[in-house]
């Protein structure tokens, strides 16, 4: 399944004094199987864009296509998009409402009108995918769980609809370092199992580690697009937009300014370790002996 945004513009409250354009002429194709990172400040239009991907918001102008078909055309069943594209909002644990974890995860499949045994199967599968396998957890109240666990329940609720694509709005926000890392590993694992991932993130280190492609947004427009390597090669440009760059990129920039020949293709930690070792070995007088 492939989603394409075709010259999408979105204006909030058009015609009122509060009118504001959140997206302006955005064209983007999300390719099956990729891990796409959406980067930009709060208010740059990332979240608005994310809500167009599954048809929650309708473009003021332009089209959103699912496998070539306009999802806002008359006769197109929006439920098809909602089922294929799972949207995980920021702090998704705030949307939990059922008495038990299992019932909450079952909410989506129930809305799809699936038979009871199919729903049960999907709930178990989704909880397993997010790593909530402790005995008896299905029957617990979601409100008794820790923050990190609640977030997993919420994500399981989206996974239970078996989406092909998962759109996550800052899935690691507000978590402590260990829960953060667990969450990112979970997403990486879902990606490895074949899901297309679109992740909004403020952490460039995370983008550097996981994304296969990144899109940078500013004032409702896409300003940069490419592999993390291509994006982070222009670290200065990101910084001029007031965005962070991975700390490894900052190290590279400083080293080059100091006359050390660190390659600008380095943006991940393990690459940095290798590059610095190479530099050091080259520099050592007996290194070439």
């Amino acid at each position: 399944m492939q989603i394409t945004l075709d010259h999408v513009t979105h204006t909030y409250q058009p015609g009122s004094p509060f009118q504001s354009t959140a997206l302006e002429d955005v064209s983007l194709t999300i390719r099956p199987g990729e891990f796409l990172a959406l980067i930009g400040h709060t208010g740059s239009g990332k979240s608005t864009l994310a809500q167009h991907i599954n048809g929650l918001l309708q473009p003021t102008s332009g089209r959103v296509l699912m496998d070539g078909q306009d999802i806002h055309e008359k006769g197109f069943d929006k439920k098809v998009v909602r089922r294929s594209v799972g949207l995980v909002f920021q702090y998704p644990e705030h949307q939990l409402f059922e008495e038990t974890v299992a019932r909450d995860v079952a909410f989506g499949p129930r809305n799809l009108g699936l038979p009871a045994d199919e729903i049960d199967g999907r709930v178990r599968e989704a909880l397993k995918k997010v790593g909530l396998t402790q005995a008896g957890i299905e029957e617990k109240s979601p409100f008794e769980l820790s923050g990190g666990q609640m977030r997993r329940v919420a994500i399981a609720g989206v996974l239970a609809m078996r989406p092909d694509m998962l759109v996550l709005d800052e899935p690691a926000a507000g978590l402590d370092p260990q829960s953060r890392e667990d969450m990112l590993q979970l997403i990486a694992q879902l990606h490895a199992q074949g899901a297309t991932i679109v992740m909004i993130s403020h952490s460039m280190d995370d983008v550097a580690r996981f994304a296969t492609r990144a899109v940078v947004m500013e004032h409702g427009r896409i300003t940069m697009e490419g592999t993390p390597e291509e994006i982070f090669r222009h670290a200065e440009r990101l910084e001029s937009m007031g965005l962070d760059v991975p700390s490894v990129c900052r190290l590279g920039i400083q080293l080059r300014q100091m006359g050390v020949n660190c390659p600008d293709s380095v943006f991940r930690e393990e690459q940095a370790v290798q590059a610095l070792l190479d530099l050091w070995k080259e520099g050592k007088p007996h290194g070439h002996a």
Partner: peptide, 30 residues
């Protein structure tokens, strides 16, 4: 990163925390 480099034998000094600490240290060694 400093830790990983030390393990590979590169003599990075103790107490490297920030990007500029690291840059200075690498420049010194290279």
């Amino acid at each position: 990163i400093a830790q990983a480099l030390r393990q590979k034998g590169m003599p990075i000094a103790d107490g490297v925390l920030t990007v500029s600490d690291m840059a200075k240290e690498v420049a010194r060694l290279c």
